[in-house]
Design a protein around this nucleic acid. Sequence first.
RNA 1: GGUCCCAUCGUCUAGCGGCUAGGACACCGGGUUUUCAUUCCGGCAACCGGAGUUCGAUUCUCCGUGGGACCA
Length: 473
Amino acid sequence: MNKPIRVRFAPSPTGFLHVGGVRTALFNYLFAKANGGKFILRLEDTDRERFVEEGVMQIIESLDWLGLRPDEGVWLEELEGEHGPYVQSKRLNHYSSYANDMIKSGQAYYSRTSPEQLEALKAEAVLAKRPFVYNYAMEPDFGSDSDTKGLPIRLKVPEGSTNWTDEVRGSFDTKNVLIDDFIIIKADGYPTYNFANVIDDHLMNISHVIRGDEFISSTAKHALLYDMLGLSRPAWVHLPPILGPDGTKKLSKRDGDVNVLDYKAKGYLPEALLNFLSQLGWNDGTTQEIFSPEELIAKFSIERIQKSPAVFDAQRLDWMNGEYLRNKLTEEEFIEHIKPYIPAGWLEDPDYFKSVLRLDRDRIKRLDEAKYIMEIFFETPIIDKQLLHKKDDASTVAGWIAKTIAALEGNQFTHDSIEATLREIAAEMKVGAGQYFYVLRVALTGRTEAPGLFDIFSTLGRDESLKRLKAVI
RNA sequence: GGUCCCAUCGUCUAGCGGCUAGGACACCGGGUUUUCAUUCCGGCAACCGGAGUUCGAUUCUCCGUGGGACCA
């Protein structure tokens, strides 16, 4: 009785995979894995005008980075499966075969309305303030002309109504008079989205259609198609939209909803991004915030998918990424992750690199920040004199630094010995530690934010530290 | 213009008739620290409005308002 669980992610390669698409892919993936089902990747490329060649590889690369590997369908090489091909442009024979059958049975027809006539009909409807719903009665009389070449095929929508159930929103009931005789095969011979989608989901044995809620309004058409073809319907699961930061419109490019590979470039971990996205429109009902991919699979359920939209909050993503960076990686793993973001030369002395990393690791929220944060330990900083003399005049500062150099020459140069010496000097000069240490920090790093001062000294070592101090006086 | 969907802190959300409406991000204080970050403690902050149902509504129903999606 129960159909095997088979879900698909079916993007159109019209651009790059973006955040909304990833969330859809993720929920499909989680549902499949949670139920021992199959996750299928299908490409909907019948919109030839908007097709982007690189789009296909970008989608695969993105899913691969995220670890959302399909069980079946389009992939780098090896995948595919018994229901292929998984690219719609290679499945044209299926669509025309179904369409022809529907014409024979009178469920569909070749439409002879010209674009001009169509426009006129629309204008008429607008003028009469009536919704425009195309139907068979509007077809022009074509007499004995039986040439059907280059004509689009329309569905002949029957009377009655179509109802269907969404697993998260409940049932919908649409009067068929509101559904127009939509085109199923375009004049160029390609199927429309609505048609190809249904045929493929049927042929590929899809049990659950999990997709964005922008498809709710076309689902009645899909349900109708299944019924007319006598096919059993899948379960529909529509996901709430992800809105941009101001909450008034869908997340767009302007809000950072760009190629997900940009998130990789910026140094987000895939686990963190998935964790974050999993909470947009779903939660497990507890106060848990951090979920490993395995936990998500174990806990995911359609019942807990939200109805209301979610706003994409980049700050929360940054926080979560920081959590992963700090707590979910071993030192070795962290180093592996950070490599692409830093100069290779920094790793020449692994022990030194590790000692720097231990000071800076908790400060890194995104891997692309690592270079800036760590570079003070690998490159001679440029000192802004204005910054150096911000709190005290140049001669005072020079005096402090000279004294510091002298005192540190013979120091053992451990964190504690440096601290003892510097505090002694501060007391001796009757200068506040905050003021004095500020100057040393700037002299050493060129910055006002950095790790602890004594850690900087001891990590840099005596030679480098003194060299930097001497350079500013 | 038509059809449909949604509605708890600024944001992600818990709640499924009776709670001081909970957690997290952000923000603001304070401790730790020489600074930023980390960390710990504390604080600010929400049930869109109006009817109805009910002994009792954040929760159920209806209307309104607001936001969104699709089609045109």
